[in-house]
Amino acid sequence: MNDLTLIREAAVAVGETALRMQSEGLRIWTKDNNTPVTDADIEVDSLLKAMLLRARPDYGWLSEETADDPSRMDRRRLFVVDPIDGTAAFMNYKPWWAVSIAVVEDGQPIAAVVHAPELEETFTARVGQGAHLNGDPIQASTTAELVNSGMLGDAKMFAHPAWRAPWPDMRIETRNSIAYRLCLVADGRFDAALALSAKSEWDLAAADLIRSEAGAVLTDHKGRTFSYNKPVPLMPSLICAAPAMHPLILERVEHIDLRN
């Protein structure tokens, strides 16, 4: 079984577990970083770790819900996992959450799945072989103007008076799962996603490969591309956009100092 088949089957299986636990009633608490977590997050993480490392015992492991083991940096390949990306949506019975799994080799994702169980959407990619939604090929949009584009982000941020120039009229929406946002850019339902706050490797690794194989561009707000399995697994910000849109957004935000 190749890596993509392995992680796709695992994501679908634990998605069913998450839905069952949600229907039975969740236990919810707050982590030390003041973000919510549920018993399903922990159970899905445990199931994935057992399932995937049983199949690939020589791979490393990096997950939002597992204490970080620095020995992962000694592994050429590792799984980068967010067991439930978009926990706030999940615990409030909204569909904007996903299981996100990437296989990273030498700092770059080579196989990826983002599975949104409630939406019955499974995004997959393998390096050099394109990106797919439920088995069908996907492609980023060809939109070349900000005006009237579809943007995923915080509407209040775009409306803030401190911008050097006002943003044009755009269709601005948000989704709780960062990975799912990037996949919506990858399949052309939205033209771009912007976040000017730090994101973790597990938020991005799988969706990074999916957007790349679909032809979208992903950088931080300074135009720097991402690598994974770093000692501190954080990215300062993100711009994910159709190729013609990315430089238009970068021009508006690259002057910002986030001090990350």
Rank of each mutant, 00 (worst) to 15 (best):
A18N: 08
A55D: 10
R8N: 10
Y93P: 00
R224I: 04
E64H: 00
V113A: 03
F226N: 06
A144C: 08
A195K: 13
E254F: 13
R175Y: 12
H246A: 11
L184K: 11
W61C: 03
T66W: 09
V185L: 11
S212Q: 14
A67N: 12
V217S: 11
H221N: 10
P137K: 03
L53E: 07
E213R: 06
L218D: 04
D85N: 04
F226E: 06
M21W: 07
T122H: 05
K156I: 06
E9A: 09
L6G: 08
A89W: 05
L4F: 04
T5W: 05
K49T: 04
V114A: 08
V217K: 15
V12A: 15
A206N: 04
A155C: 03
R76F: 05
A40H: 01
E65K: 02
R77G: 07
I178G: 07
I138S: 08
V104F: 14
A88I: 09
D85F: 00
I210P: 07
N34Y: 05
G128Q: 06
Y228K: 12
R181N: 09
A88V: 11
A244Y: 07
L234F: 04
D32I: 03
G25P: 02
G86L: 02
A89G: 11
L52E: 05
G223T: 01
V44A: 12
I7T: 06
S23F: 03
A155Q: 10
I178Q: 12
F79Q: 07
Q129H: 09
P95E: 03
A192M: 10
V114P: 07
N176E: 14
Y93W: 13
T142K: 15
E105C: 07
L19N: 02
S200A: 13
L184W: 06
I7K: 11
R20L: 09
M51C: 13
T122A: 02
L234M: 12
E64A: 00
A242Y: 07
D69E: 08
T35H: 10
